[in-house]
């Protein structure tokens, strides 16, 4: 089943990018240009290369929207600057608040802006709700490949692209205008990247659940708005969670949204124990992905078996 699915998808991808996409070959004899190259490659395409392809596909797809990306990076930068001033004023009033100095607080602010694109903090960033409404989801569900993993792979591709295109520019601008902190040693960089990746996965897992909810609701805008409030407030995007007072703070730091922005940022600043933080993110990723898998099964039942 896995095999056939891989083949189907690989075919679709070659259709779209017939001229410039070379499929990873599992067979050393099937060099590019040999007659049987394409057929052999397709047959030997394994599950892992398939999802790797989808990641690349997601990356490429979004790399075509150059101007939209530039515009997004610009907007993120402007908001980064405005928010940085707020945090600077706060840290001038309370130096050393929450264990950060002013530079670290400013750094925090620009990292949160860098997270917006890759983690799609303002919306689901998925086409699933549209496809559920139009009924096209049935086509996705009859494919012998997991809808969830498929979407995740594409999402990771986009996140990778947006990390470079919409994440790095605000950081550089922040560094130029205010000066920002950076990890002292390679290990800390590595921890940040791992945490960032985990954050993207948790954010995807959450957005996937929100997207699936359309199937059971007449009006999905409610869930969307609800998710927006929870995500912007409890991810640390608006303010570091360590500023939240009392029990609200404890709660916010334990919720899945903390795994999105707060956790990778703390890893970047070296303010959190690496293994514990990654474990925290991993737990939420596992829980939410599992819930998403159950949701996919339920939706498959609803759409494919009951016929919508």
């Amino acid at each position: 089943m896995c095999h056939a699915g891989a083949r189907f998808i690989a075919l679709r991808i070659t259709d779209r990018k017939a001229d410039n996409s070379r499929l990873p070959s599992a067979d050393p004899r099937a060099g590019p240009g040999t007659a049987g190259h394409r057929a052999i490659t397709l047959r030997r395409c394994k599950t892992i290369p398939l999802y790797a392809l989808l990641v690349r596909y997601g990356f490429r797809k979004h790399a075509t929207y150059v101007w939209a990306t530039v515009a997004g990076a610009f907007t993120n930068s402007v908001f980064g600057i405005l928010r940085a001033y707020i945090l600077i004023a706060l840290w001038q009033a309370r130096p050393g608040l929450a264990g950060y100095d002013v530079t670290q607080a400013v750094t925090f602010c620009f990292i949160t802006q860098a997270c917006i694109g890759p983690m799609q903090l303002f919306g689901t960033g998925l086409t699933i709700p549209e496809r559920i409404r139009s009924g096209d989801i049935a086509l996705d569900l009859v494919r012998p490949a997991s809808l969830q993993l498929w979407s995740l792979a594409e999402d990771l591709g986009r996140a990778a692209y947006l990390f470079f295109a919409r994440g790095i520019p605000p950081m550089l601008l922040g560094a130029a205008l205010f000066g920002i902190a950076h990890p002292a040693e390679p290990g800390q960089w590595l921890a940040f990247l791992a945490g960032f990746l985990a954050g993207v996965i948790v954010s995807f897992a959450w957005r996937y659940l929100v997207a699936l909810s359309v199937c059971w609701l007449i009006d999905d805008r409610g869930v969307g708005a609800f998710s927006l409030v929870l995500t912007t407030l409890f991810s640390g995007m608006l303010l570091p969670l360590s500023l939240f007072p009392g029990i609200l703070g404890d709660l916010a730091r334990a919720l899945p949204w903390a795994a999105m922005v707060q956790a990778p940022t703390d890893l970047y600043l070296g303010k959190a124990p690496v293994l514990e933080t990654l474990a925290f993110q991993g737990c939420w990723a596992a829980v939410l992905l599992a819930a998403g898998a159950l949701g996919t099964r339920a939706i498959r039942h609803k759409v494919v078996i009951q016929g919508g």
Partner: peptide, 23 residues
């Protein structure tokens, strides 16, 4: 929900002033 979404901005101000008396 519109009221709540807009409320996050106020929440931010309130959280800031939970940490300081003057900005």
């Amino acid at each position: 929900l519109g009221l709540i979404v807009a409320g996050t901005d106020v929440a931010v101000i309130l959280i800031i002033f939970a940490n300081t008396t003057s900005l």
